[in-house]
């Protein structure tokens, strides 16, 4: 490492700490809110650390008593998992072949740009056509219908990401495999896809997060426990006459857990995918 003065070192650490504080503060506050009692949350001046730690709201939200807030929340948690999971899987299924085709055939690269262009449209513009289409297909208030809508958002994005991943894999490797006698499916299965695995993991995680956090379409296209997702359920908690901020915070903490767990599991693949976008030959 190069020589650095003490002031510079202090400055670097201070900057890093500041960045960490800015990023972490809302999350920490969310967690504190979720374990504070309602009285602690509404006292003035604000109490930064609760007098007694109150975990009861976690019990409320995770209870399975019929017709309770808990049951609705748990149902929406599973809806979210299903919708985001299906949409992500379908997005990868679409993205991998199309991204490979675009990457290996520069002449059709424009088509990807055309698809990306649809990305520029505000979601509101598509809301009515999508609503009518879902209604015609009988897929309103249905996890499959919502997953289908999410697929249209995720597929362009994952294709784009996968294309840059495939771009970084030298074509000569595939040529070599062709000369070695591998069929197209063997080349993809044995060579290209294993090499693109880190990018695939990155694409999957980002797609999952995007679907997990989506609110607008979910609000429009779902109406009850059969298809409502987490984001909508959390909004419902805030929509009553009396809002329990602690409860909303608890729901937020619980909603953040599944993506966090997935992220932790894919950490290694993710880091290499984010940093070098692929493989060196």
């Amino acid at each position: 490492m190069e020589r650095r003065s003490l002031t510079a070192t202090i400055f670097v650490y201070a900057a890093a700490l500041l960045l960490a504080a800015v990023i972490l503060a809302p999350v920490v506050w969310l967690f504190i809110m979720s374990i504070s009692s309602t009285t602690d949350l509404i006292t003035k001046p604000l109490r930064w650390w609760p007098e007694t730690i109150d975990l009861s709201r976690y019990g409320v939200l995770l209870s399975s008593v019929a017709n309770s807030a808990g049951q609705a929340f748990v149902a929406s948690l599973f809806n979210s998992l299903e919708v985001a999971g299906m949409a992500t899987a379908a997005a990868l299924l679409v993205a991998v072949p199309s991204a490979w085709a675009v990457s290996r055939t520069p002449a059709i690269g424009w088509s990807l740009y055309a698809v990306i262009a649809t990305y520029m449209l505000p979601p509101v513009a598509l809301a009515v056509p999508l609503y009518m289409a879902l209604s015609a297909l009988g897929l309103l208030n249905n996890v499959f219908g919502l997953a289908l809508v999410y697929l249209t958002i995720l597929a362009p994005f994952t294709t784009w990401l996968m294309k840059s991943g495939f771009d970084s894999i030298p074509r000569e490797i595939e040529s070599a495999a062709t000369v070695d006698g591998a069929r197209l499916d063997q080349i993809l299965r044995l060579i290209t896809l294993p090499l693109a695995a880190p990018v695939m993991a990155t694409a999957a995680l980002f797609a999952f997060l995007l679907a997990w956090d989506e609110f607008f379409y979910a609000l429009l296209f779902t109406s009850d426990q059969r298809a409502k997702t987490l984001t909508v359920a959390i909004a419902d908690l805030a929509g009553g006459r009396v809002s329990d901020y602690g409860l909303i915070a608890t729901a937020g903490v619980l909603a953040a857990l599944p993506p966090l767990i997935i992220g932790l599991f894919m950490q290694r693949a993710l880091i290499s995918g984010l940093t070098n976008g692929g493989v060196k030959g």
Binding site: P170, E172, I173, S175, A176, A177, T178, V179, D180, G181, A182, L190, I191, P194, L195, V279, K280, G281
Partner: peptide, 29 residues
């Protein structure tokens, strides 16, 4: 098809399969 031409090719960038061992690389054909 290249595989039926009875040829073998060595590329400028070596084009080894990075995810396979040397032995499997050599034996891949």
């Amino acid at each position: 098809h290249p595989k039926d031409r009875d040829i073998a090719m060595v590329f400028q960038s070596y084009a080894l399969y990075p995810n396979m061992s040397v032995a499997r690389n050599i034996g891949f054909g």
